[in-house]
């Protein structure tokens, strides 16, 4: 499309269709009232403690422990999602087996199942008297009411993000590999390592980023299975709730703002990495 075409198109669209001011007014008003003003409150409130007070809140050992658990467990869960998500996506895209469509539909269940329901169900499964919890307790692994329980809940929540990110790209690669294979005759393993993995790595990373972002802030599915022991299995969002219950608004806002800043920084790095990988895999 030439520049002249673009300009003509723009003029035609803007000239003929009405409703720009009305739709923009609704959009901007709603975004301001629901997202921007509330987030501004979050950004402003902590500073009534002073720079010093915010620093002291965020370096309090209980807060540090909660941050370490929330970000650490989210990272481990996102990594587990990368592995399991790739296996599930691979099975759904590459193979034909009975129940494949059902498996495909079930991938979205963690999106559709309300988090509190997932939370109590996972707890019932992994509690010391639950079916899997008893099995694991038998070999000496404590899952529910420990950081491992947090990881399990976060892995559950994040799985669909990786599968849904990888699936379309894997389907796309399939066709390209088919072409290449016909002309080159590389072995399956060579093709996987040299062609498929580099091509789907950015998608895996994108899915991992989404899963991680969701996991860091997750609350409902975690608080039942975590046991919520201060310093051990207490997640950062729960600390916000506790501070609010003590009417420590500024402290709660400081923890919330800290969480947002750290997770946006991590997402930014993941995003840059993803862009770099995409560019590299395209040569």
């Amino acid at each position: 499309m030439t520049l002249a075409n673009v300009r003509a198109g723009r003029r035609r669209q803007a000239g003929v269709l009405p409703g720009f001011r009305l739709s923009m007014a609704i959009t901007l008003t709603w975004l301001s009232v629901i997202v921007l003003i509330p987030l501004a409150a979050l950004a402003i409130r902590p500073w009534e403690l002073g720079l010093d007070g915010v620093w002291r809140t965020l370096t309090d050992e209980r807060v540090v422990a909660a941050f370490r658990l929330s970000f650490g467990a989210a990272a481990v869960a996102a990594a587990a999602d990368a592995v399991l998500g790739l296996i599930v996506a691979w099975a759904i895209v590459r193979y034909r087996f009975p129940g494949r469509r059902l498996l495909d539909a079930l991938v979205d269940l963690p999106f559709a199942l309300p988090t509190a329901v997932a939370g109590i169900a996972l707890t019932a499964i992994y509690a010391p008297d639950g079916p899997l919890g008893a099995l694991l307790a038998h070999v000496g692994v404590k899952t529910a009411y420990s950081p491992l329980g947090v990881v399990i809940a976060l892995t559950f929540i994040g799985l669909p993000f990786v599968v849904r990110a990888v699936q379309p790209v894997l389907e796309e690669v399939d066709r390209e590999v088919e072409e290449a294979a016909r002309t080159l005759g590389a072995s399956d393993y060579q093709r996987i390592v040299r062609v498929v993995l580099p091509a789907i790595l950015p998608a895996i990373l994108a899915g991992v980023g989404l899963a991680f972002a969701r996991a860091v802030g997750e609350y409902g599915s975690v608080i039942f299975i975590a046991g919520n022991l201060p310093m051990v299995s207490e997640i950062a969002p729960l600390l916000i709730v506790i501070k609010l219950e003590q009417y420590n608004y500024a402290g709660a806002a400081a923890v919330g703002l800290g969480m947002l800043v750290i997770s946006f920084a991590i997402l930014l790095v993941l995003n840059l990495l993803q862009t770099w990988l995409t560019r590299r895999s395209r040569g």
Partner: peptide
Amino acid sequence: LPFSISPVISGLVWVLLFGAQGF
């Protein structure tokens, strides 16, 4: 943006605005 915000923070912001000690 709301997809990348913790649900707890999505509740917290309203308390910061309209809670007993909110703005």
